[in-house]
Design a protein around this nucleic acid. Sequence first.
DNA 1: TACGCTCTGGGTATTATTACCCATACTGTC
DNA 2: GACAGTATGGGTAATAATACCCAGAGCGTA
Lengths: 207, 207
Amino acid sequence: MNIELNVSVVDDDPAVRKSICALLDSDGLTPRGFESAQSFLDAFSADDTGCLVVDVQMPGMNGLELQARLAVLGIDLPIIIITGHGDVPMAVQALKAGAFDFIEKPFDDDIFLDSVRRALAQNEMQQAEKTLFAHAVERIALLTPRESEVLEQLVTGRPNKIIAYELGISTRTVETHRARVMEKMQSRSLSHLVRMALAAGIAPQSS
Amino acid sequence: MNIELNVSVVDDDPAVRKSICALLDSDGLTPRGFESAQSFLDAFSADDTGCLVVDVQMPGMNGLELQARLAVLGIDLPIIIITGHGDVPMAVQALKAGAFDFIEKPFDDDIFLDSVRRALAQNEMQQAEKTLFAHAVERIALLTPRESEVLEQLVTGRPNKIIAYELGISTRTVETHRARVMEKMQSRSLSHLVRMALAAGIAPQSS
DNA sequence: TACGCTCTGGGTATTATTACCCATACTGTC
DNA sequence: GACAGTATGGGTAATAATACCCAGAGCGTA
């Protein structure tokens, strides 16, 4: 299946939870219900995809706290916050903290489903970027300190001769490091290397 | 002055406008008051910096409409929306549309000033990116169609020989185009060129 | 028509990069 | 002590890129 359809619904009210899941199910999505933020976190695996629908008012960890928790964990699942008793500051806080949407109950089914669809679409794009650039990060992790230095110089655009001078070694050794960097990064070209480095957050120094 | 301090205050109520301007002024900022969205737009120049504080309820163009108008114009000044009679959907709409903050009146002075400071800081970062990569876009505009094709191939990481084959011309001509691309882009190295191209949104084809 | 721009191509020479081979020395860990 | 990994080098050769020079064909515009 090409499009991600997982929607996790976190709401302590069984009736509401089942109602939302039924709505999602009727729209062809695959909802999973959780009675608490903790039970969601317990069942959650780091590479899960889809989106999250979470009520604010819950015993234990509430919706906004769950949002903050996921942010700390570096999990960027789109989160749709729903609430029966929200106010403007709460909505502002949630959205500024990166929530995908903030919807008051009772809500219009179509508006809700539309938001979920958009959230899933956003997650798909996120996943694409993630898989594309996760490689960059994990490959960079394989580099030795010296190789990392050479990589930095490379993305800055310096030729081997200058790199050798900067690092105080011979061009010969730079060539060795350079070759190993290309090998470890599985990069066939300098431009590919530059893109991977940029994706991984390696900024040029003074180019 | 290093830090941008311009804050445009758009509110139809003279008393409120002056009050906010006085508050900003007392904090060392340089506020400019406008009685309507239109008068702000009239006085606005495309390269103005700083941030914008705008009331929602105004005769003529309201705050959210002004926000949409600026978005259409491609102006990304951080906007702080203030309102005396806001609701959750309005706040959600404004923030999802890119508003920097949404504050209900009456507000706490410190919270407001803090938000303004953050908005100014964000604008500074935006400006830095803008000046950094606006060059890329305007320089790419100087390229001839053929040169643009060569640029695409270059950022994809293809050597001249392959580019020549792809475009059905000699490596000689590719070298000519390549040199002219580097010259027009004012790029000293391939990595610099790749970064500029990426900044301008030129994606590699199949690398 | 003349000018400028674009696209095309060649010659020559220098420099940079890459692909192979090789080695030594120092650090750890098993 | 053996072994793996890292950092440091060398030799040789082929390939790629760069920096200069040059020129003609085509296409618009002043």
